[in-house]
Simulated scan of single mutants.
Amino acid sequence: MNLRFFALASASVLALGVVGAQAADLTYEPAPVVAAAPAAFNWTGFYLGVHAGAAIFDGDYAYGNYAPSDDNTGFLGGVQAGYNWQFDNIVIGAQTDFAYTSAKISDDVVDAQNKLEWLGSTTARIGYAFDNLLVYGKGGVAYGQSKIESVAYGDDSKWHTGWTAGVGAEYAFTQNITGLLEYNYVDLGSKDYTFAGGVGASADLTTNVIKAGLNYKF
Rank of each mutant, 00 (worst) to 15 (best):
G45K: 01
G45E: 00
F46S: 10
F46E: 03
Y47R: 02
L48D: 05
G49S: 07
H51M: 14
H51D: 08
A52E: 03
G53K: 05
A55M: 05
A55F: 03
I56H: 15
I56D: 15
G59A: 15
G59Y: 04
Y63R: 08
G64I: 08
Y66P: 12
S69Q: 14
D70C: 08
D70M: 02
D71M: 02
D71R: 09
N72C: 09
T73Y: 12
F75Q: 07
L76C: 04
G78F: 03
V79C: 07
V79E: 07
Q80W: 06
G82L: 00
Y83S: 08
Y83C: 01
N84Q: 10
Q86H: 13
Q86M: 10
Q86V: 06
F87P: 00
D88N: 15
D88R: 14
D88A: 14
N89G: 13
N89I: 07
I90S: 12
I92A: 13
G93W: 01
G93T: 05
A94I: 01
Q95S: 07
Q95Y: 05
T96N: 12
T96H: 10
F98T: 02
A99P: 01
T101H: 06
S102V: 04
K104R: 10
S106R: 14
S106K: 14
S106D: 14
S106V: 09
V109I: 10
V110M: 12
V110E: 11
D111F: 12
D111S: 15
N114Q: 13
K115E: 08
L116D: 05
L119D: 00
L119F: 06
G120M: 09
G120V: 06
S121E: 04
A124K: 04
R125A: 00
G127C: 03
Y128S: 01
A129M: 11
F130E: 09
D131Q: 02
V135N: 09
V135W: 02
V135R: 05
Y136V: 01
Y136N: 04
G137C: 09
G137E: 01
G137W: 02
K138V: 07
G140S: 10
G140C: 11
G144I: 00
Q145D: 13
S146N: 15
S146L: 06
K147A: 13
I148R: 00
E149D: 15
E149V: 12
S150T: 14
S150H: 11
V151Y: 10
A152R: 13
W159L: 09
W159D: 09
W159H: 08
T161K: 06
G162L: 01
G162M: 05
W163K: 08
T164R: 03
A165M: 15
V167C: 01
G168R: 00
G168W: 10
A169K: 10
E170W: 02
E170N: 11
Y171W: 07
T174D: 09
Q175K: 15
T178S: 14
L180S: 13
L180G: 11
L181D: 01
E182G: 03
E182F: 12
Y183M: 12
Y183Q: 11
Y183K: 10
N184Q: 12
V186P: 00
D187A: 11
L188P: 00
L188I: 08
S190E: 15
